[in-house]
């Protein structure tokens, strides 16, 4: 249960086409992340799947059944919203029970499922509070609780962590991943944060301007980005792009080297440069190198504590097998 298939789906608002024809299959039990910069259409795509927006053409099937014209209430999908969208006038218990009440389950069954969900999500002590009395993280859990009680075919998450502070975000990320492992239900997760995408996804869908740029597992995208956009979007710090003569040496329009694939040497390297800003994180050290003559700034990531300072002149050695080559279309060259 929980296979979702989009065939030639398009969406236009007036004359503006936000989603050009798009095909995508989301496998049963898969954790799929839609990722892309803001305005790339990822949330719209999720809302199309949810049924909160009509598609302009094409077909959406859920578990083999045509769902294109099925209203959201009947698609057996649950959604967790960015703002959590809890019902402020209901207690946590009533919030979580709401989908069950709508499904007209009997009271005993409702109570049982709510208790179950609450214990999974550590909400048992808060069942009689109102959403307004909860912290951000707790509200997030209530929203998830409301989604899981109805045992949907798939979960849809719309940037669920963007309203939480950094520390909570890491915690909730883990909780959602664990939930997926335990429930083994299809999840579609929208985010603009590539770290969330890399850490949580079975499959990442990179979107730009409504187009799918690449679909693949996190490491596939990391190792073999299909084009410059994906190469730049996945991975942190961003991949260095080098044009011109240096790229021509590799018979490419542009070459890309990830910061962690450049070694720093004291003395002569393949490239030379001056340290601009050095960020010492302890576990890693990031250098922003100027004056290399091949790109304005190169970012380099060295493991551990490496003691170069602002103004030091250093040598850089890219790992030959980790140089990505792109043609003049920005597409990956084999």
């Amino acid at each position: 249960m929980g296979q979702i298939k989009l065939e030639k789906v398009t969406k236009s608002f007036g004359d503006v086409e936000v989603i050009p024809p798009l095909d995508l299959t989301i496998g049963e039990g898969e954790f799929t992340v839609f990722v892309g910069p803001s305005g790339c259409g990822k949330s719209t795509l999720l809302r199309l799947i949810a049924g909160l927006e009509d598609i302009s053409s094409g077909q959406i099937t859920i578990d083999g059944q045509d769902a294109t014209n099925v209203p959201p209430a009947k698609r057996r999908l649950a959604m967790v919203f960015q703002s959590y969208a809890l019902y402020p006038h209901m207690s946590v218990r009533k919030n979580i029970a709401f989908p069950l009440r709508m499904a007209k389950l009997d009271q005993a069954e409702q109570d049982k499922r709510v208790e179950q969900a609450a214990s999974v999500l550590n909400l048992t002590d808060y069942l009689d509070r109102r959403p307004g009395q909860l912290s951000g993280g707790q509200r997030q859990r209530v929203a998830i609780g409301r989604a899981i009680v109805r045992e949907p075919a798939a979960f849809l998450f719309d940037e669920p962590l963007s309203n939480l502070d950094a520390a909570l975000r890491v915690g909730m990320r883990l909780e959602i991943s664990e939930l997926h492992k335990r429930l083994a239900t299809t999840m579609i997760y929208v985010t603009h944060d590539q770290v969330e995408a890399m850490t949580m996804a079975d499959k990442i869908v990179v979107l730009r301007a409504g187009h799918i740029e690449q679909v693949g597992s996190p490491l596939e995208l990391y190792r073999t980005p299909r084009n410059l956009f994906v190469a730049g979007f996945i991975g942190s710090p961003k991949m260095n792009h080098i044009d011109g003569a240096e790229a021509a040496k590799h018979s490419a329009k542009t070459i890309g080297v990830r910061p962690e694939h450049i070694d720093v040497v004291d003395g002569e390297g393949v490239w030379q440069g001056t340290v601009g800003v050095a960020e010492h994180l302890g576990s890693d050290t990031f250098f922003h190198i100027h004056g290399t003559g091949i790109a304005e700034t190169l970012t380099v990531r060295a493991t551990g504590e490496v003691d170069f300072r602002h103004g030091d002149r250093i040598g850089l050695v890219p790992r030959a097998d980790q140089i990505h080559r792109f043609d003049d279309q920005g597409l990956r060259m084999p």
Binding site: A50, G51, L52, P71, P72, A73, K74, L77, A78, M79, F81, Q82, S83, A85, L86, Y87, P88, F98, P99, M102, A103, R146, R150, L156
Partner: peptide, 10 residues
Amino acid sequence: EILEASRMDG
């Protein structure tokens, strides 16, 4: 979004 949530909730 709250009304949409209720729609998703059936």
